[in-house]
Design a protein around this nucleic acid. Structure first.
Lengths: 256, 256
DNA sequence: CAGGGGTGTTCCAATGAGTGGCACAATTCG
DNA sequence: CGAATTGTGCCACTCATTGGAACACCCCTG
């Protein structure tokens, strides 16, 4: 009997919004457009529900639908996201200074903020034709393995530092891992020097020099780094430029 | 009886997601952080519901909450929005070329796409210290009144052109309006010349020269313009630069 | 320091929006 | 031309969603 039961469990009863965001989250850099079923399986939302919700999202402008039926992230989201103080808000005042740094050095320039135990790349100016792009705007990167990451981590609450130490400290390109003590030493150096220097040998040897941007109450709210081929210049030579620009941005934020 | 009824109407029965997006939409350039009640009244969602939904949005990362209890648009939204093909996707390939144009001319450079009967500003490089900023990234602007707008409108489906003609054709700074015929003539010229030129006398006389970016099937998917103080240079002199850059981007998109 | 207006917050009964399995149509594929 | 996979419509069941009322707080101001 029970077996034949129609059951019809509309069950688990999961917050509506969660599902919607899971659908949105199923997109990725490699999959900018997805079919309904792809979204459905990736976000683990039944097909019928996925369709219904996706349609509502289209109505809101959060998604757009192509002629072939596939879904794409919509412009409306950009519109709203551009109001995020820690995103485009920050970017707006920082960008001109980043450009200065960009033309002065001719290298990649990165702007990132911390979100939980990761760094989010808010803006990136790429050296023309230079080495492959490592991270994309809107993407996340580990705190322990990048210049901006180290910078943000060094000035984060110690509870978070502990949490990161306890986590995964592997360095991706090379196949080794940091020990918590190595990291602790590095962070101390970052705090002392006011800049973070990180190197990465892999695809091509790159070195990044990062400095923090301070908010109104002298708390670290973001970090900027210049990423150069290690062979190109002495990274130390970049230190004055990066710190100077970061101080300028910090001042501009206060004024803004 | 009925009178004493607690009623308790959970009534209108409005799609959940709509409310959530109305809450998000209540933010604006001038109000990057809002209190619960502000959001509640702006989006016309009862306070209790607003709180419940806002909390869920915080859980999803779409909103963040400051120490003082105010809400702000969250980073997660930037993360997702950065996957919008017509937003950051387009931006990613266009930005280097825009920079070229920026340093070559020393003027504002704008990148916009059409969304319905408006243009959305996807990227903006500002001339340092130059005239006040007219539009912000993620903001919307009318199709009939700006260089990029005219460019996008000229190549839009005629049904949309008609719709715009029937709508509001006022020019904001100066207090006059276009007639549909004036606009029609302008659009014809834009299609003929391959560039759109728009002037705006108000805060300070500015002229913008815009050209279209073409997609894989030669449809217009975006437009780029250079905005200069009218007195500075003969706008016509910018035409080759703008068109050349737009063709380069179109080609890069195809290759991409 | 009682009082008033302003927050954000918790509570709760009533109900309709959301649910997802199933069946169907239109493709594409082998 | 079946077989598999797509997007879609249907619909009875029910639980997440609903919003008014009451509460706990600040801030002011009189």
């Amino acid at each position: 009997m029970a077996a034949a039961q129609r059951a019809h469990r509309p069950p688990v009863g999961e917050p509506v919004l969660d599902r919607a965001f899971r659908l949105l989250a199923s997109f990725g850099p490699a999959d900018r457009s997805l079919s309904l079923t792809s979204m459905s399986v990736r976000s683990d939302v039944p097909k019928s529900s996925a369709l219904r919700i996706a349609r509502q999202l289209v109505a809101c402008g959060a998604l757009e639908r192509l002629e072939d039926g596939d879904f794409v992230v919509g412009l409306r989201l950009l519109e709203i996201a551009s109001l995020a103080p820690r995103g485009h808000g920050l970017r707006e005042t920082a960008l001109p200074y980043m450009e200065d740094l960009h033309v002065a050095t001719g290298q990649h320039v990165l702007l990132a903020v911390r979100d939980g135990s990761e760094a989010v790349l808010v803006e990136r100016l790429s050296a023309r034709g230079a080495a492959r792009v490592l991270y994309r705007v809107g993407g996340r990167m580990p705190l322990h393995a990048t210049g901006v990451g180290l910078c943000l981590l060094a000035h984060a609450p110690s509870s978070l530092q502990d949490h990161v130490m306890a986590g995964d400290l592997s360095l991706h390109p090379e196949n080794r891992s940091l020990t918590p003590n190595q990291l602790r030493t590095t962070l101390a150096a970052v705090r002392r020097d006011g800049v973070a220097v990180a190197s990465r040998p892999d695809p091509s040897p790159m070195t990044s020099v990062a400095a923090p941007i301070l908010g109104p109450r002298d708390e670290v709210i973001a970090a900027i780094s210049v990423v150069t081929p290690s062979a190109d210049v002495d990274p130390i030579a970049l230190r004055p430029a990066v710190t100077a620009v970061c101080r300028a941005i910090s001042r501009a934020m206060r004024a803004g």
